[in-house]
């Protein structure tokens, strides 16, 4: 698996992940949720935003089952999904704990946390 290096902008996200909490930027000025973290809110360009805890609930906008991961350290097959969180933001993640036949576009999911050699990752399970 690839290791990653958080920036000043994203360090808090990963610190919280290590504590089992999923957070996302919320704009203090316009209320927009956004992801990935940016210096300014992409909706109103305000620099007044803070990380807030997410419910961790959402649905699968789309997914693809990867049968040839980039290297052998990844599990295979791997269900990569574009998750729409209920607060109105999106992130890439994995669907775990089920067979691909049980995954549908639109399936409700919730976040859980798994430890890998490269670090702790937020992953999702079908409700």
């Amino acid at each position: 698996m690839r290791t990653w290096s958080p920036s000043e902008l994203t360090a808090y996200f990963w610190t919280q992940i290590n504590s089992g909490i999923l957070v996302r930027p919320v704009c203090r000025s316009c209320g927009a949720n956004f992801f990935s973290p940016q210096v300014l809110c992409p909706s109103c360009q305000s620099d007044s935003w803070e990380y807030e805890e997410s419910s961790g609930h959402g649905y699968i906008y789309s997914f693809t089952e990867i049968h040839r991961p980039p290297d052998s350290s990844f599990p295979s097959p791997l269900i990569v999904a574009d998750i729409e969180l209920d607060e109105g933001w999106r992130m890439f993640s994995w669907i775990v704990g089920c067979r691909s036949e049980d995954v549908r576009i639109g399936s409700r999911v919730y976040v859980t946390f798994e430890d890998f050699d490269a670090g702790t990752l937020p992953v999702f399970k079908i409700n």
């Binding site: 990653w4 994203t10 990569v80």
Partner: peptide, 15 residues
């Protein structure tokens, strides 16, 4: 692509 919200998930362009 090398991005901390992409690379950990094993994504590649075809995915």
């Amino acid at each position: 692509p090398d991005n901390e919200f992409v690379a950990p998930w094993g994504l590649f362009t075809a995915a």
